[in-house]
């Protein structure tokens, strides 16, 4: 993979459309306007991680795992910095990874009795969903361990 015009323009397309979509999503979820810039920067970060991981490995599971890990770490840190629940940042960042397209093609191939397409798209959907799930879980359990330690030691003091 090289940093040529195609890569940059494609990344820009994903980032901008992803940010517009996430902006719509957070409006639907009635986010506090003060949190919006931070959430949207997180979205761009998540999409960038996803794009480069996909370019390097062309593996759906791995690229979504990396992107979800980056998103969760960003959300957990920002939640602590701004004293906000983590969900406020995590949900907008994960939404752009959700395999809506693959889910649709799985369904469409089911309707068209296309076994091969169903198998392939169904597998991809599962791999992406699993990648996101594992990514979120790894980082958020890590943060919960740190929080528990902190609570324990402040209680001792």
């Amino acid at each position: 993979m090289s940093f040529d015009f195609v890569v940059v323009s494609e990344l820009l397309k994903y980032c901008i459309s992803g940010i517009v979509a996430t902006l719509g999503f957070v409006l639907v979820c009635n986010i506090n306007f003060k949190r919006m810039p931070t959430a949207l920067i997180g979205t761009a970060l998540t999409i960038a991680f996803w794009y480069f991981a996909l370019g390097l490995t062309s593996n759906d599971f791995f690229s979504n795992l990396v992107a979800a890990m980056a998103a969760t770490a960003y959300a957990e840190i920002m939640a602590r910095v701004t004293k906000t629940p983590t969900t406020v940042y995590l949900v907008p960042e994960i939404i752009s990874l959700v395999p809506g397209g693959k889910l649709y093609y799985t369904m469409a191939s089911l309707m068209a009795s296309d076994t091969e397409g169903f198998r392939k798209n169904g597998y991809d959907t599962l791999a992406i969903a699993l990648g996101i799930a594992v990514g979120i879980v790894i980082i958020s359990t890590l943060f919960s361990i740190i929080t528990a330690q902190k609570k324990h030691f402040t209680a001792i003091k």
């Binding site: 994903y14 459309s17 719509g24 999503f25 639907v28 009635n30």
Partner: peptide, 22 residues
């Protein structure tokens, strides 16, 4: 205001993801 935001949000979300998914 919540309802208006929901309309604007749905508009942006659907358009954004359509481009995002090529």
């Amino acid at each position: 205001r919540k309802i208006i935001m929901r309309y604007v949000g749905s508009l942006l979300l659907a358009a954004g993801f359509t481009v995002f998914f090529e």
